[in-house]
Simulated scan of single mutants.
Amino acid sequence: MQCDSDEEWTQPFLDEEDPLPNQICPYATSSEISIKSMLEISSIDSDDVVLDLGCGDGRIVIYAAKHYGIRGIGLDINPELIKSANENAKKEGVDHLVLFKVQDFANESFDFKLSSIGLYNNNNNNDNNNKLIYPTILTCYLIPRALKVIESKVKKLIRDNDSESTNHKSIRIATIVYPFERWQHINDDNSLKIFLYTKDSIDIIPKSLDSSNPIFI
């Protein structure tokens, strides 16, 4: 998605067909200005760890590592995109800060814990970030049906585990283009269609929700 600050935002074309088994969202790119806004609206700092769900070529995680010096993980079900992400991280000189994996994050068995995903070496006890059990910023550029698949899992993560993710930070979730259907965002960048969610907004239902379909997560 390419968009400049003085241009009108336009929705990119997204093919609804699944090119790979278990793929819940087609590949689409996000612009640097959108990535910058997404991380800024999440109040990113050097203590954060980013997890990008459906990372594609890794640009969100790589941008965060390059501009903020933080660690990050990118997950995607497409091995070709993960290969590109690793190549891009090496070109940008941040491959020591990031991890890209082929992962079906929509699967019920997926565990958000950093140790389970493999970002940290459990033997590296001198790493101060090892106190982080979960990533502190989740990012995603997913179509509505994909967001619906993961919404309950993400809410459960925050509702059950937010307090133990770190001693001083809460988990934030930022989406590009599409919001969660049954979760009211707490902040947004309307010009770039970026939406921020936190524990404070977890049980707030959007006013625009169709009352004829009152099935809440």
Rank of each mutant, 00 (worst) to 15 (best):
M1H: 15
E40H: 14
I171N: 04
I143D: 06
I217V: 10
H67N: 12
A146F: 10
I24Y: 09
G56P: 03
E181K: 13
Q2K: 15
V49I: 14
L53F: 07
K66Y: 08
N167E: 08
Y134P: 02
G118I: 00
L14E: 08
F13D: 07
I62F: 08
V102L: 10
G72N: 05
Y27E: 01
Q103Y: 05
S201F: 04
D76Q: 06
T10E: 13
W183N: 11
S212T: 15
I204V: 11
I70P: 02
A28N: 13
G56S: 02
I186M: 13
T139R: 08
A65E: 01
C140G: 08
Y63K: 10
A146S: 14
F110L: 06
A85R: 08
K148R: 15
K83Y: 08
V149A: 10
P79F: 13
N78H: 05
N121V: 00
E7D: 13
Y68I: 02
E32P: 02
S31C: 12
K90L: 04
L132R: 15
K199F: 07
E7W: 12
M1Y: 15
A64I: 00
R59P: 02
L192K: 15
I186H: 13
L132I: 00
A65Y: 09
H96A: 07
E7Q: 13
R145M: 03
A28G: 12
R145K: 15
I137T: 02
V102G: 01
S42D: 04
L39V: 04
D104G: 07
G93F: 10
I33W: 04
N128V: 00
E92G: 03
D188E: 12
L97T: 03
C3M: 09
I41M: 13
H96Y: 11
S42N: 04
I173A: 05
N128H: 02
M1G: 13
D47K: 15
I150N: 00
E164W: 00
K36N: 08
Q2N: 14
L138T: 02
T166L: 01
N107F: 11
I24A: 12
D6C: 05
I82F: 12
I60P: 01
N190D: 10
L81A: 06
